[in-house]
Design a protein around this nucleic acid. Sequence first.
DNA 1: TATTGTTATACTCTATAACTATA
DNA 2: TATAGTTATAGAGTATAACAATA
Lengths: 145, 145
Amino acid sequence: MNDPLANLPGYVLRRASSAALAGLNRRLSALTLRHVDASLLMLLNGQPGITQSEAGRILDIQRANMVPIVSRLEARVLIDRQLVDGRSQGLYLSADGEVLHTQVLTVIDAYEQTLMEGVPAPLRKQAMAVLHAFWQSAEAAIGTD
Amino acid sequence: MNDPLANLPGYVLRRASSAALAGLNRRLSALTLRHVDASLLMLLNGQPGITQSEAGRILDIQRANMVPIVSRLEARVLIDRQLVDGRSQGLYLSADGEVLHTQVLTVIDAYEQTLMEGVPAPLRKQAMAVLHAFWQSAEAAIGTD
DNA sequence: TATTGTTATACTCTATAACTATA
DNA sequence: TATAGTTATAGAGTATAACAATA
């Protein structure tokens, strides 16, 4: 093939990410969850009581775009809101949310292991370091020219 | 930080891809191009005469979604269509398209080099191999359970 | 029958501006 | 003044179904 794009790390990153996301969403659909829902459940398990603005900053989701996500999960009684002060609400996994979170963990752990096992063994040891390096590099390159 | 997501290759892939895309689109906006436009120009430079269905298959873009992309570039006279048979049209860079393509190459080469230089030297040699491995692994994992 | 280009449509994700209530 | 949550809205990107013309 004569694909001039296959040499570009940015392009390959995007194709890999897109394919990985498709596989994940396919598996999460069994739990009637989207990947962003699953990521919030996992974040709340690790940092219970975080506000939705803080969660958005960590997950790189705008404040405004957190609203439908949190509403969706609250409507399914997977998360609870608890007032911190007059304007902030801490988010927590509900009892149902805890249960579903364990199922999410099972799905995601299996999936990420599958992804990792698809990487040839000689590359596997450095694979995560390479991804983190690109993440950091790309973040640094957003604003510069 | 206590971010349980940072250990997941799929999540880190997505964050890295998202950041890389933001930086690229920012640079391409100087040429009034989106990343998908730039990718098509580069593909047509490498494979002139390809049909838009073929281009879509290579770039992982549905046939129906190629229509507005090709129309947009044709309206700017950056690409030409040439009938192959009664139903297929070969796509080619126009003279203006060739000129713009060289500018695209300059922007993208500089950007991808920046991305790569942000990866610590010890990891750099294997970086592309790791990305390709995840791409292949993720494609293989889409359909399986 | 299968494929190309096309239209229409819907859904997801993302980005921005503005408003209120509170700190 | 700054921040949290919210609403509204617009722009991308993506997915599916259907159709006409052609292979």
